[in-house]
């Protein structure tokens, strides 16, 4: 659908082709952006199911949730929050650089974003291994001792499923960032054509946005 010339330079604006069924570059650009926004809607509702389950079970098994959430590490969660909002900033700056046809700035910012995403996953890895070691696992696998309430397993089910799916989105996001990083390095993008950078950017912000809710609900208030 979209292809770009490989002979792009920081100053010159690389050539690109408007797909045959669009009447102008603007229409094509808008269509892409609307498509991404519609996709984000589906992501919100996808995670929404889990938020719904969270609220309902929190309502029912309130004591279990309060007790269980003390077993999550607030500091690690806060650290991850900082990683993600910083990566959101660098992602936004990468889009801005691409809009101004700054090739190396785009590449650098994407690279930082990629690293921060990696940091997020490393922290997550330590959290997970710690939980698994303590037997703080979902449902039937829950084996931790010394809980006063019955339903901590439900809390950890929601914790693992939500953070797990979110983590999967981070991994997918890293793949996408890598893809546009390579394309940016190749010089595909310019002020005339940066739709993929912006699309991946929007996706990445949504991943951040979901974490903005996950963090307080799971780690802070339980």
């Amino acid at each position: 659908m979209m292809s770009a010339s490989t002979e792009a330079h920081e100053k010159g604006s690389p050539d690109f082709v408007v797909a045959h069924h669009f009447d102008s570059a603007d229409t094509q650009f808008d269509a892409g952006r609307l498509g991404i926004w519609l996709f984000l809607v589906t992501e919100v509702l996808f995670f929404g199911g889990l938020f719904c389950a969270f609220f309902i079970y929190r309502n029912w098994y309130f004591d279990s949730f309060v007790e269980a959430h003390h077993h999550l590490d607030k500091q690690m969660g806060a650290l991850n929050t900082v990683f993600l909002i910083t990566s959101s900033l660098t992602m936004a700056l990468a889009v801005r650089a691409a809009q101004r046809t700054k090739r190396s700035e785009t590449v650098n910012m994407l690279f930082v974003t990629f690293l921060l995403a990696g940091c997020f996953l490393v922290v997550k890895y330590f959290e997970y291994t710690h939980k698994i070691h303590d037997g703080l696992l979902p449902g039937a696998m829950f084996s931790a001792q010394g809980f006063a309430t019955q339903h901590a397993g439900v809390f950890f089910a929601i914790y693992f499923v939500m953070t797990g799916i979110h983590g999967l989105h981070v991994v997918i996001g890293m793949g996408l960032i890598l893809w546009i990083l390579i394309r940016a390095h190749r010089g595909d993008f310019s002020s005339r054509y940066y739709a993929p950078v912006e699309g991946v950017g929007l996706y990445w912000h949504l991943v951040d946005l979901i974490w903005i809710y996950l963090f307080p609900l799971l780690y802070l208030v339980g």
Partner: peptide
């Protein structure tokens, strides 16, 4: 998307008994 998450939870439930 809600069907997607429902079926995913169903698969996880059947495979790992997560208890939701």
């Amino acid at each position: 998307p809600v069907l997607a998450i429902t079926l995913l939870l169903l698969i996880l439930e059947r495979a790992f008994q997560v208890g939701i």
